[in-house]
Design a protein around this nucleic acid. Sequence first.
DNA 1: TCTCTGCATGGATCA
DNA 2: GATCCATGCAGAGAA
Length: 922
Amino acid sequence: MATRRCMNAACGVTEPGEEWRRGWGLRSGGFAMLCVKCGLAYEQLAFCDIFHQKESGWRECSSCGKHLHCGCIASKSSFDLLDTGGVQCIGCMKNPEAPFMPSEVVQNFLSQHHQGVFALSTRCSKENDTDTAVVTRACEMSTTTADSKIDVGAFVKGKGMSNVDVEQSESEIRSFGHIKWEQQSPEVGIASFSNRYQGPVVSSQISQLDEKDFVTDKSISESLAQACLSMSLGNTNQVSNMESCSTAERPLLALPMACSVAEGKDERKSLSFFQQLPRARFLAKPPKTSNRAFSDASRSALPYMRVARPPAEGRNQLLPRYWPRITDQELQQISGDSNSTIVPLFEKVLSASDAGRIGRLVLPKACAEAYFPPISQPEGVPLTIQDTKGKEWHFQFRFWPNNNSRMYVLEGVTPCIQSLQLQAGDTVTFSRIDPAGKLVMGYRKATNTVPLQDSQISAIANGTFGNETLFSGVNENISTVSGYSGFLRSLKGAMDPYLSSQLEHMNASDEEISWYKGGMPNEGLQLQPLQKRSRNIGTKSRRFLMDTEDALELKLTWEEAQELLRPPPSAKPSIVTIEDHEVEEYEEPPVFGKKTIFTARSSGEQDQWVQCDDCLKWRRLPVDVLLLLKWTCSDNTWDPKRSSCSAPDELSHKEMQILLRQYEDLRRQRMSASFKQTSSELAASGLDALAAAAVLGDAGNQATTPYATTTKHPRHRPGCTCIVCIQPPSGKGPKHDPACTCNVCMTVKRRFKTLMMRKKKRQSEREEAEAHKKLAWGSKEEVEGSSSSPKGAQHLDPHQENEFGQESGKSIIEQLETSKGHIDLNCHPGSNEDSQTAPPRLSMMSLLQDAYRPLETYLKQNGLTSLASEQVNQGSPSSFTAPQAPGESEGKAPDEGHFASEEQEDGDDGDDGADMVTSDAS
DNA sequence: TCTCTGCATGGATCA
DNA sequence: GATCCATGCAGAGAA
């Protein structure tokens, strides 16, 4: 064991006693740590090197053996010994900002008080804390730092400190950069004392914290400790002569996470952390995975984190979901103008039974045992809890045995719940007012809330909710689109009030935020709340089943949200193959785009319509344009005549309204249809069905194959099961076996066969010279073509395909090969062997393109003009015709798009050509 | 018949 | 596998 001299030279301790030997640490002005094993928060080991020097460069808590590492670097980094004592990780040392950056606490405090006082506290160890008084200490001195002069004399006088104390403390303050040591209550888990987020350095290090990490996770605890060890006491160059101080007066940063036994003694005697720093910040636990991808800017955009790590009383380590998330407003509301200290204890999202008429609020066991009076009898004890308005509510705090454990409940909460108009999903927070010890119950309404996952809580609290958390993949790149704040503002409405509250600070406006929903900004995109972990969607648990409308809305809105995702601008994807699936992988996260609607002309040509954010006029755009979140007429480079908001609408207001109304109706219809289909599928799917699907494999694959949403088929949208949408874009992705009977292949085959059948039929009529040659194929095709019957179309199997007439079919294929290049033999009705020997290339998409090309066009291109006239007369009842755009033809052929029936989809490929048939996609 | 009470159940999560 | 906890449920008592 390599014991070092305490970094705090004033301490003078070179051989830490047993009371030191607890793993924990401090970061520069940011937070204190909890011993990962013993749970002590206030060991006075702040600046002492008490860890084993391991060969690996890691240090180990001499007490509990937990490894600690600097929080600034995710990977292992060795430590270096500082001249002033203590250790510092290499990573931190290389980072001129991280360790030496003046404490945000000090900075903030100085900025507010011009005093170099800074609350720090010591605390007794867990084992002997019951009778070990925390030595409160204050320092009095005037010292000059690089930026400011500190005068803490007034404070010291106020504390009645002796000159000796002052002298001792003076060095402490010098060394620690304007810090006042003071006994501190353990109310807050981790605190950042800044009013504003100070930047990435601290946050990134803070982000290393984790509840579990503190307690059990050794690997993570390493990160914690490294943060400790890398803490800076200010610029070491500024560390002046250090004088000794008694170990009993070893300073500690006033950061809670106290041991429990001393609760109620020390903390209530101590000056409040909040009293000293009325706007103390709660910070939170970090994600398990340190994620530094979150940009500095984005981190700095989360200034008001209030995820308070609850006091570790009774060593109960609460699940993060119970960590109280309290906003400034809530704090102020609870505390009022008094100097009382608010100790956020825990919170709970009300379940249905909690908010129900039973009047029982189930309390998390750990919370109940930690913060509520101990009870030994099931009858429990009456408990008076005050709400934020000061009204006192009387509950019965009790428990009943449950699985060799206890289930704690608050009974009689109905009047309170009703009074506060709380519902399931709302959150109640329990806090304690010190020193009075009163329990206070606050609440948050759950409008559009997102009960965050534990990891999300952590990540958000640490400003690292990046790729792996709630808003996966969404980070600062958003700012390249519409401004990060705008993005966050958009997110706000869908997030937990807590997070929303954080985001509020990035946007001065506290007004209600609506999601931009494509071209209809007035429609709030109802992004539904995320549920906790996997208990939300798709769970079999009854308790989480949503009613049909909710489910419908949830499904659809997420689809809609998904629609708005765009590949990151100017980002080139790399193609990776995962389980034989080629996936476009972007380095950058997706961005939100603007939603548009699409229309199709009779010629099959499509238009995209977008609404200007400023003038709300609709502009026609090419279909292949991807728009970012904000779009105005000035961005209309495709139509210079309408590149200004002053330019008139291309369509009249009425026409556009009709278009939009029809579009919306159609959307709803499709939503309902989709939902009904899903519901029926779900209803029909039992375990047997699932098992059968699993056995069949194919069905399973279909069930699990995500719909590929491609920008190449803008008329289609997520959820569309048409062949275009279920086919990997750009011909990428796995090729199907020629004998594959999956939906994709069968549809391709059907469509191709029908197409070819018609073509062949016409050709056979016209080309008498080839009549005999094609007659054989044609006759068979006539049989199958009668198949325009469902039977013929749907029961097509590979064997039948082989009978399809290889010779004739081959000639057709050859034609296509000649014109289109390689043919996807997967789609060749009778070329199984070939496909296996020669991997197809893009031909399926070619066929699809042909198949989806308006038949009229196709026929014309193939010299089958006589068919064209027929096709235009075939309508699709499910499509609607939009007002004709100026300059458009008068053709009224309906579109065969994915609004068409399945039969049309399969058989009537020539139904394309709807005039201005709207479809939505992004 | 409704409400309350105490406990059981089982899915989700944790270790 | 253990534990938590949301919810169900049966029995008792009240309306």
